[in-house]
């Protein structure tokens, strides 16, 4: 029998590869980006990298494109996160109640999430096509006026939200379904003996029991919403008239089209700050409301 010290040493050895990759690919870039945010680094500039203090952050707060991208990102999050949580929870409840075909439906729900975001976006771009798209084909067949789903400023973002829901609901539903099945059955039985209604069962047993998982879904979907990029980049490239240009696309344009790495890093940190504040607020609110 090996000694505890040998076992620990062996365990550490197994952790080293991941630890090294964590330091190299997570910690180092974070530190690098933190330093970068306080410097002026333009790849095409004649000047060397130099420290500029908070100038990049000041510029961002005054930049109309940053303000607009923040508004777009917030609007996208407000539209998608509640819909995402409610729909996936509803689907999970529905699936739990299904006597037959549950696995088939579960598989079908999960299928879209297996597509890469590029593939999913291309498929939906064709669904939404103003002239030749599937949705407008259906509308025309019914004698209705076609809609320019991605071409109109007021419709483009909601259309992307719908696509994102189709793409992402499956994964969250599966997680919630798994959590639902972990709720002890005796709690329901006891409540039903006491005459609890279905609504009471949901609000007093299911939701409180699901609290940690719901919090997880809210937090991850909020982070995902604030980082939206693939869908908007592929489906509208930020248009029409920048109405779908979110913060990550602004960071991408700033860093890789304008080559202003320092300024792009400062926007990244502002995005990180926004996400952190919102996540903490969500966690506190959710915890308090359920307590």
């Amino acid at each position: 029998m090996k000694s505890l010290r040998t076992q620990t040493r062996l365990a550490n050895l197994f952790v080293i590869p991941y630890g090294m990759s964590f330091v190299v690919f997570i910690i180092c870039p974070i530190v690098f980006a933190a330093v970068l945010a306080f410097t002026q680094l333009d790849l095409t500039s004649r000047q060397h990298v130099h420290f500029v203090g908070f100038d990049n952050f000041r510029e961002a707060l005054k930049d109309p494109y940053f303000v607009q991208a923040t508004q777009v990102t917030c609007l996208y999050s407000v539209l998608i996160v509640p819909a995402f949580v409610i729909l996936s929870f509803g689907l999970a409840l529905g699936l739990q109640g299904m006597a037959f075909g549950r696995n088939t439906v579960r598989g079908m729900l999960f299928l879209p999430g297996m597509f890469n975001v590029v593939v999913a976006s291309i498929i939906w771009r064709w669904f939404y096509d103003g002239e030749f798209g599937f949705f407008n084909y259906l509308l025309k067949r019914e004698g209705l006026t076609p809609i320019h789903w991605l071409g109109e400023k007021t419709l483009a973002l909601p259309s992307i939200v719908v696509m994102s829901l189709w793409w992402g609901l499956g994964g969250a539903t599966i997680i919630l379904l798994a959590a639902l099945e972990q709720v002890p059955i005796h709690l329901y039985e006891a409540a039903m003996i006491d005459g609890a209604t279905s609504r009471k069962l949901l609000t007093k047993i299911t939701i409180p029991q699901m609290r940690p998982v719901l919090l997880f879904i809210v937090v991850t979907s909020t982070i995902g919403a604030f980082q939206v990029f693939g869908q908007t980049f592929m489906m509208t490239n930020g248009g029409p008239d920048r109405s779908t240009t979110g913060l990550v696309q602004l960071i991408y344009d700033t860093a890789f089209n304008k080559y202003r790495l320092g300024y792009a890093a400062s926007i990244s940190w502002l995005l990180f700050f926004m996400i952190s504040v919102i996540i903490i607020a969500q966690a506190l609110l959710l915890r308090r409301s359920i307590d």
Binding site: D129, G130, E131, F132, H148, G151, E152, P240
Partner: peptide, 17 residues
């Protein structure tokens, strides 16, 4: 021309529209 919201452009040309 097709309205701004439309993206008939090149695809429409290829489709003889």
């Amino acid at each position: 021309t097709p309205p701004a919201e439309s993206n008939a452009g090149w695809t429409g040309f290829r489709q003889k529209k």
